[in-house]
Simulated assay, not measured.
Amino acid sequence: MFRNYRTDRTYIIAEIGGNFTTAEQAVRLIDEAKATGVDAVKLQTYRARTLSTRGAMFDMENTGVTSQFELFQRYEVDESLHEEVFRYAEAQGLDWFSSPSHQSDVDLLERCGVGAHKVGSDDAVNLPLLRYLANTGKPIILSTGMCTLDEVRDSVAAIKAQSDSRIILLHAITSYPTHPENVNLGAMQSLMREFPGLDVGYSDHTLTPVACLCAVAMGARAIERHFTYDKNADGPDHMLSADPEEMKWLVDAIRAFEVMRGSGVKEPAASERVTRINNRKSIVLERDLKAGDVISEADIAVKRPGTGIYPKHFEEVIGRRAAVDLKADAVLQWSNLA
């Protein structure tokens, strides 16, 4: 479903697709993800025969050189397992959805009652699939790895021409893993400027949670990070996935940032009401004065607390007369001056 998406906080997605092949593994991932405080879990929905030719090859750091068809075939999830995983995620209060790679995958997810669709970067420019997804009327989360800005414009236009589905754009880099020099979070902000009416976030493939936290600080509305129970487990995505401890740290850090971000209005914090008085400074006397004495520059100084005349009035006080007898170290008030 898609019930946990809110406009007042970052939406955090744990990508578990590719990190399980059995219901037991999926349940463990969902339980662990739930405990970290994420909002959603995401699967990958594909059939090797509709996704890849038998000659297509991977050549990435996490896979080495290997057959795409054979790797995808190994991690296919059938419809019954989809349903079992989705039902369990929903029972845990998590949103759930998937990345379909073909129109038939969309149909499978629709039969499961999915509340939103995620588009992987490999299909970001697959306009026939995007139009098919748009026809469902469901929210579309669109990763934009490998895309130029013009290509993103075309994809957004294709969806909008078909329906008024909510579109959430995710900046992404399709390198597994992504190293810091390639993250380019500034491109995420370029998407924000280009599409001011859309929520924009970040889909992460780095080896640490730092990029995700930086993205949130730069305005990301949604964060997607691969999730595993063991970084050393068998499978290509485990190495670039957050484990439970790391994901918990990330979720807690994001929620802490959201509190720290505040209203944006530059004004004294509630906690500064007392310190604003005690820790600021006022104009004070350096010597005793009698009523009628003229105040010279040598007679006054600027010291704590901030309960008297503000230092910005220092020049105005010079040349005034004391209205009453005053002791050295007295904090001057306007009522003390004639």
Rank of each mutant, 00 (worst) to 15 (best):
S335E: 15
L198N: 14
E267L: 06
L29E: 00
Q73I: 08
D150F: 00
Y88R: 07
R255H: 12
Y229S: 15
L108K: 10
A91I: 03
G113W: 02
I12H: 07
D199Y: 14
G37K: 09
D150I: 02
Y176A: 01
A269R: 15
E286L: 03
R54Q: 13
A217H: 02
Y88A: 08
T228S: 11
M188N: 02
S143Y: 02
V284C: 04
P177D: 06
E181I: 02
I295T: 02
S99P: 11
G17V: 06
L170G: 00
A211D: 13
A33T: 12
F314P: 05
Q333I: 00
K42C: 03
L285A: 11
A187D: 05
V284M: 01
E224R: 13
G197D: 01
S296Q: 12
A242S: 15
G115C: 09
A301G: 00
A328D: 01
S101V: 01
A330R: 13
T208Q: 03
E83Y: 00
K138D: 04
N278F: 09
D234W: 09
I141R: 00
R131V: 07
R255W: 05
G55F: 10
T10S: 05
E297Q: 14
G262T: 10
R193N: 10
S241Y: 04
V210C: 05
S263E: 15
I13L: 11
I140A: 07
L213W: 00
R193V: 09
G219W: 11
F257T: 03
Y5W: 12
K42F: 14
V324H: 06
K281I: 04
K34E: 12
